[in-house]
Design a protein around this nucleic acid. Structure first.
Lengths: 162, 162
DNA sequence: AGGTGTTGACAACCTGGTTGGCTATCGCCG
DNA sequence: CGGCGATAGCCAACCAGGTTGTCAACACCT
């Protein structure tokens, strides 16, 4: 009824993502971290994984430096990161995740894992891993011509070619 | 490396969706429908499936009436829908999909299907269907308390209980 | 030195969404 | 028949997240 198989799959992907993210955001709000959006959590994760400046974050997230700077400003406002002057490079403001930031990502990641575990438990054994594997191949399949490696919402290593 | 299994799965969902949608939007632009976003296509699909007014579209999409009205305005600007006065109800502006609108959704849906087919062909037989089935269970698993049936991005049938 | 490229910041702007307030109309119940 | 609540559409203000363009400061390489 609702359209066609392809559309349905796309909507399922979106729905799954939104369901997970929505739950995690709610959980974070419940656990003392209101005002955190999915973007902010992913940004903070990227920072923890090595994006140690606004520009680096921009590359990791695949957005403009300004957009990344906005996220950093919000994260700083919420007390999740500190911007400290870099002694070695006066241009840089090095990003340092605060203890509260660590707590936030820990709660968020744990909730993501819990959701995935609950979901996996409702499926055949191994089915969740199979889904992950199948999804990982989607971008590759859709893009026969140029094999770009850029992540969709980023969070990829700082491999940024540009 | 990149965080944890739960986060990775969420990112895969987002990535898969964005990959499909990005490709479809490109294809639409190539085939004479520039300026069409995923939102607009989904909105038009919802209209075709019974959301015959801005308010109904809002319900189907799960957004505010104003947001739906904006989408309708854009769709009308692009020539995909007509707003006609409803003879039976002077308040309403009934939505009618134009032939061009039909063409657009046809191209979009066909592309979605093609992408899904290509993806399915790269997997084990039946794997794509299994993924769909698994994803369909995600929202249900994450929401043990109230079994709401509302779709994430909507596009559900006009079953609107209203 | 000096040129090139990077960093971070400011400003203007776009998109898609929200809330609040308003009017016209319909439907239903007395 | 009258009145009132619910509904449809619309306007304006606002917000979040993203973009481009510009700029000054700084680092690095020759």
């Amino acid at each position: 009824m609702e359209s066609t198989p392809g559309v349905r799959t796309a909507l399922l992907l979106l729905g799954g993502f939104e369901a997970m993210v929505g739950d995690v955001v709610e959980e974070l709000a419940r656990r003392g971290h209101p005002g955190v959006t999915a973007n902010l959590e992913f940004a903070l994760l990227a920072i923890k994984e090595g994006a140690d400046s606004a520009s680096a974050l921009a590359r990791a997230l695949g957005v403009s430096r300004q957009a990344a700077a906005k996220s950093v400003a919000t994260l700083a406002d919420l007390g999740y990161v500190d911007r400290v002057d870099d002694a070695a490079d006066a241009r840089r403001k090095a990003l340092r995740v605060t203890p509260r930031g660590d707590e936030m990502t820990a709660i968020g990641a744990a909730r993501f894992d819990e959701l995935r575990a609950r979901w996996a438990a409702a499926l055949e054994p191994g089915a969740a891993d199979a889904v992950d594997a199948a999804l990982a191949r989607l971008p590759e399949v859709l893009r026969p011509p140029s094999p770009r490696s850029v992540g969709p919402a980023g969070l990829e290593p700082t491999t940024s070619a540009v």
